[in-house]
Design a protein around this nucleic acid. Structure first.
Length: 336
RNA sequence: GGCCUGAUGGCCGAGUGGUUAGGCAACGGUCUGCAAAACCGUUUACACCGGUUCAAUUCCGGUUCAGGCCU
C-alpha cells in the first residue's frame, strides 16, 4: 500500500517550514526536504535550515558529531574522490528529529561536493521506499522546483559522462549550438544562448544517440500538492524581514566560519544568493583578507560603515526577490 | 520683486526637428545532472498652455514648480 504523500511547494519565505511541521504532526508523517542547498552540512542560517534542536550539539563546522561516528567522519574527510564520498555518506544520511518529526535529506553531504538532481532523486526515492514499507505518511517540502517535479513525475534523468562532458566543455558555445542543431534542433533553438543546457543536451545525444527530449520515460507518483502563494508585496516584505533576521542571527559570521574551516570562496559563490552575495561582500571589505594559506584573517569583527551594510542588504533583497519570482514561475508552470 | 538654471517613463540618466539611448526596479516566460544556476521576453516618457513648421520631446513665447543668485 502506498503511503500518503503530500508535497508542499512555495517560494522562499512563504512559510513552508511552519506549514510542513503542522501538517506532519497532524498526519503523523515524516518530512523529506527538497532543497538543493539544505543538503549541505554547515549551510544553516543562509538556507534557513530548521536546525534549532540539534544545533547546540554541533561543534564541528559541518559534521554533527552526535549523528556520525568520529571514525567515519575521518574516513570521509580523507576520501579523495567525491563520488566515493557521496556513496559513503549515503549510508550515513542523518535523520533529524525536529519538534518530534523525522526530517530527511538535510545535511547529507559536506560542502564543496557536487550534488545534483540525480543524487537527490536517488536518496529521496530510497527514503520514500523505506517509509512506505512502514506505512508512514510523508510530507515533501521544498523550494527547489526541479527536485519536486522530478520526484512527482518520476524522472529517470539521462546518463552523464565526465569525459564526454569535458571534451564538450572545450568547445565554443556557437560550436556546441551548431552540432546540436544537426541532431536535436528543437533543444538547440530553444536554448540557443544557454551554454550550460546546450552542452548537456549534446552530451545526452552523444551518450544515447537520441535527442534529449526523447529521453523522457517517466512514471509519475501520486501525491497531493499544496502550493503556497502570497501576494507579491507581502512576500517581498517577508523576505526583507527575514534578511534582517538572518543577519542578526549571524549569517555573515556563518560564511566567515565556513571560509575559516577551509571552504573555498569560489564554491560559496557558486551557491548563489546569500552565500555568493555575502562572500563577495566580505572579500570587498578592507579589513577582511584571505592569506596565501587560503585562510581568511578576520580581525575580531568586520567593521563596516552604514552605507556598506545598506548596500549588502540592498543586494540581498534584489537577488532574493528575483529568485522568489523565478520560483513562482516554475511552480506555476512546471508543477502541475 | 528681479535675474539665472532646470523640469524626460517607478527610480537614475543620455539625447534628438521626423526611424523616439541605456541602466536599475517591476512583470511574464524557458526548464529532465551545477536548478543555488543558466537563459529569453515585456511595459510605462519627454511639466502645462499656445506658437513656428509638412512635422516638436527637441525651436520660440507664456504659465507652474524646483534650485541658485541679487535687492
Amino acid at each position: 500500500m502506498q503511503s500518503k504523500i503530500t508535497i508542499i511547494a512555495g517560494p522562499t519565505a512563504s512559510g513552508k517550514t511552519g506549514r510542513s511541521l503542522t501538517l506532519a504532526k497532524q498526519l503523523g508523517a515524516a518530512i523529506i526536504s527538497a532543497d538543493s542547498r539544505m543538503v549541505y552540512q554547515g549551510l544553516d542560517i543562509g538556507t534557513g535550515k530548521p536546525t534549532w534542536e540539534y544545533r547546540q550539539f554541533d561543534r564541528s563546522p559541518w559534521i554533527n558529531p552526535r549523528l556520525v561516528p568520529t571514525s567515519e567522519v575521518t574516513i570521509l574527510r580523507r576520501a579523495q574522490d567525491s563520488s566515493e564520498v557521496k556513496k559513503a555518506v549515503h549510508n550515513l544520511d542523518p535523520v533529524y528529529k525536529i519538534q518530534g518529526i523525522d526530517h530527511y535529506l538535510l545535511d547529507v553531504v559536506q560542502p564543496e561536493i557536487s550534488f545534483t538532481l540525480t543524487d537527490w532523486l536517488e536518496r529521496a526515492r530510497r527514503v520514500l521506499g523505506g517509509l512506505e514499507r512502514q506505512g508512514k505518511p510523508v510530507v515533501v517540502i521544498g523550494g527547489t522546483g526541479l527536485y519536486l517535479k522530478a520526484l512527482l513525475q518520476g524522472f529517470q534523468p539521462p546518463p552523464t559522462d565526465p569525459l564526454v562532458r569535458e571534451s564538450l566543455e572545450k568547445l565554443a558555445t556557437a560550436e556546441v549550438f551548431k552540432k546540436l542543431l544537426a541532431v536535436d534542433p528543437l533543444t538547440a533553438q530553444r536554448e540557443k544562448n544557454n551554454r550550460r543546457r546546450l552542452v548537456r543536451a549534446l552530451e545526452i545525444f552523444e551518450l544515447t544517440g537520441q535527442p534529449a527530449s526523447m529521453q523522457h520515460k517517466n512514471t509519475p507518483l501520486s501525491a497531493e500538492i499544496i502550493k503556497i502563494t502570497l501576494p507579491r508585496t507581502e512576500l517581498f516584505a517577508r523576505i526583507d524581514q527575514r534578511i534582517n533576521d538572518r543577519l542578526e542571527s549571524g549569517m555573515i559570521e556563518e560564511v566567515i566560519g565556513l571560509l575559516v574551516a577551509g571552504v573555498s570562496a569560489a564554491w560559496l559563490k557558486s551557491l548563489g544568493l546569500e552565500y555568493r552575495i555575502i562572500t563577495n561582500w566580505l572579500l570587498e571589505q578592507q579589513n577582511f583578507q584571505l592569506t596565501h594559506s587560503n585562510l581568511p584573517s578576520w580581525k575580531g569583527q568586520v567593521e563596516v560603515d552604514k552605507k556598506d551594510k545598506g548596500e549588502l542588504v540592498a543586494r540581498l533583497q534584489k537577488e532574493i526577490h528575483a529568485y522568489a519570482r523565478r520560483q513562482e514561475t516554475y511552480l506555476r508552470t512546471q508543477l502541475i
